[in-house]
Amino acid sequence: MAVLIVVVLVAGYGAFVYFWAGGRLRTTEAFSGDGRAKAGKGTDWLLIGSDSRSDLTAEQRRKLHVGGGQGLNTDTLMIVHYGDSGPYLVSIPRDSYVEIPGHGHNKINAAYALGGAKLLTRTVEQATGLRLDHYAEVDFLGFVDVVDALGGVRICVPKGGLHDKHSGADFAAGCRQMDGVQALAYVRARYTDPQGDLGRVKRQRQLVSAVADKAFSAPVVLNPWKQIPFLRTSLDALTVDKGTGTGTLVGLGREMKKLSDGDGATTTVPIAAEPQISGVGDVVEWDTSKADDLFGALREDTPIPTSGTN
């Protein structure tokens, strides 16, 4: 669901908009100072969507099909890399079984609940060997508001449709316009998807492209009556690291537009197995050799292995 954060400030040009936007940015201490990975080449972002629902009313929870739990995990994790190579968008399955510093092995999405952004970024850096340069997050309601501020996005549902009572997804095959609630249901569905969470991360990347296309379209970019509300809603939905400013976000948006235009590549961390671990449940184990090749290419800012990109 956090895919919307990649396109904030897509039209953030002009002195007024630039400084106005900078004044609205919410920041957090996202990185710890100890034991961080060695800096690589190019730029790496960690984009997350949290499943926080503590600020939702009972009616909002019902409408969004998110239940009433008070836990705080990460529903979406993506790494964006760009530099001499890329841009690349790499999905990290939320059930990835990794070591969480100080807490043993667990699903990677538990790191945020255990220690917030700092522990999550430290966990991702340790698991991937990448030193993250920037961090951004958005929650359920922020996601919905941003899609609605764009007037919805066009999504093509694959053959067979998508029906999942847990997320609220009920879509026949074919292309359609989705509002924020529908888009959230689409990217959260996994129980009826034969690929489970791996199918969901593909839909998340699909939504990235759809949002980038809409946000960079002439009706949004050239119309201040649409552009400003979109930017305002996006900024209100975002929390970024303290080193991220307006110009940095503009650069990220431009790179994501390249992805939506077909440049670079998107992929998921290579998977070896999906076992069940006692006390943890169903997890995803990475293919260590292939994952090392992928993250090594990102670290060196060279073309990533093409096998399995999608």
Rank of each mutant, 00 (worst) to 15 (best):
K159E: 14
G161L: 13
V211H: 03
V280G: 03
A2G: 14
A136G: 07
G23I: 01
S307R: 15
V124K: 04
G168L: 04
G86V: 14
G142V: 00
F140S: 03
R254S: 08
L4P: 01
W286P: 13
R176S: 03
A21D: 07
R254G: 01
D84W: 13
V208Q: 06
R36S: 12
S52P: 11
Q276Y: 13
A218L: 15
Q177R: 13
G281S: 03
A30Q: 12
A127F: 11
P303S: 01
Q195I: 12
D164E: 13
V7C: 10
D213Q: 13
V153G: 03
T248L: 05
R190P: 06
G115R: 11
Q227R: 15
G160V: 05
T128H: 02
I100K: 05
Q60G: 04
T288K: 13
G142S: 04
V138Y: 00
I48T: 14
Y13V: 15
R122Q: 10
V280I: 07
Y191R: 14
G253V: 00
P87G: 04
D263K: 09
Y82A: 06
N106Y: 05
L72M: 07
S85L: 05
V138N: 04
A237T: 00
P224L: 07
V147R: 05
E137N: 09
E300D: 12
F171Q: 00
K257W: 08
S52A: 12
V221S: 12
V187E: 11
T192W: 08
S167K: 06
Q206C: 00
A185Y: 04
V208H: 05
G142N: 00
F31S: 04
A173L: 13
V181S: 12
V138F: 02
K214M: 06
L207S: 00
A265E: 01
H105G: 11
R61E: 07
L298A: 05
Y18R: 14
F230Q: 05
A11S: 14
L120G: 03
D301K: 08
K118D: 12
G104A: 07
K290Q: 10
V8S: 14
S217K: 05
T123K: 07
G245L: 10
M1K: 11
I108D: 09
P303R: 00
T267I: 09
